Amino acid sequence: MSDWAYSNVLPWWPYVFILLGGWLPTDMWRYLGVLSANRIDETSEAAALARTIATALVAAVIAQLVFYPSGALAEIPAPVRLAALAAGFAAFQLSRRRILVGIFSAELVIGGWALVAASI
């Protein structure tokens, strides 16, 4: 029995797959967005709908990470994840909506928990 696989025959195949399956479909929409951006009125209902959908998708991803985590994040207790979410959101609002401040604050909560958990 042979160990035939694409990676043995064509060692560059995973990179082509990443290019075709990941980068190209994503960037295609980005490039189309850049090309059509000057034609869209940002106060239009279509732009408002696009912003609403994008915000809902980000909120859904955050909710999934907090309430249904996987991998290493699943090892962090739910109250700690909720505290990190609350701290990050509060810091974001208090810093006049600076995303990095919110992210750093949430990371501090999780990092603080990790230090306490490691010392126990």
Rank of each mutant, 00 (worst) to 15 (best):
F104I: 06
I103T: 00
S95I: 09
R30K: 09
I110Y: 07
W4V: 09
R39I: 01
A91W: 00
L32P: 04
M1F: 04
T52P: 01
A90M: 14
I62A: 13
A106H: 03
Q93S: 00
L32I: 11
R98G: 10
V80T: 09
W113P: 12
P77S: 02
W29Y: 15
P11Q: 04
R98S: 11
A50V: 10
I62T: 10
A118S: 12
Q93T: 02
A74S: 13
S70W: 03
L85P: 09
W4D: 08
L32Q: 14
P11G: 09
V116P: 01
E107I: 04
V101H: 03
A54V: 09
A46S: 12
I76E: 01
A5L: 03
V109W: 10
P77D: 04
A74T: 05
W4G: 01
A47H: 12
V9A: 06
S2V: 07
A86D: 08
T55G: 11
S44L: 08
A60I: 06
I62G: 00
L115H: 14
M1S: 05
A48E: 05
L10W: 07
S7Q: 13
I120V: 14
P69Y: 05
E42M: 04
S7A: 08
D3M: 05
A63N: 05
I120K: 15
A60R: 07
L20H: 00
D27T: 08
V101C: 03
L100Y: 06
L49N: 05
S95W: 04
F104D: 01
R98N: 15
A91P: 07
A5V: 00
P79Y: 02
V34A: 14
P77L: 03
Y68I: 11
R97Y: 15
L49G: 02
I76Q: 00
I110A: 15
I120L: 15
Q93G: 01
R81W: 11
T52F: 12
S2M: 07
F89G: 00
G111L: 09
A46R: 13
L35H: 05
A50F: 03
A78E: 15
N8K: 11
P11N: 05
Y68G: 05
A37S: 14
A87Y: 14
L100K: 10
R81D: 08
W12I: 12
L65S: 10
R98E: 15
L19E: 02
A56N: 12
W13I: 04
A117D: 13
A90I: 13
V34L: 15
G71I: 06
S36M: 13
A117C: 06
T26L: 15
G71Y: 06
S44T: 08
S36P: 02
R39F: 04
R30Q: 11
A47K: 04
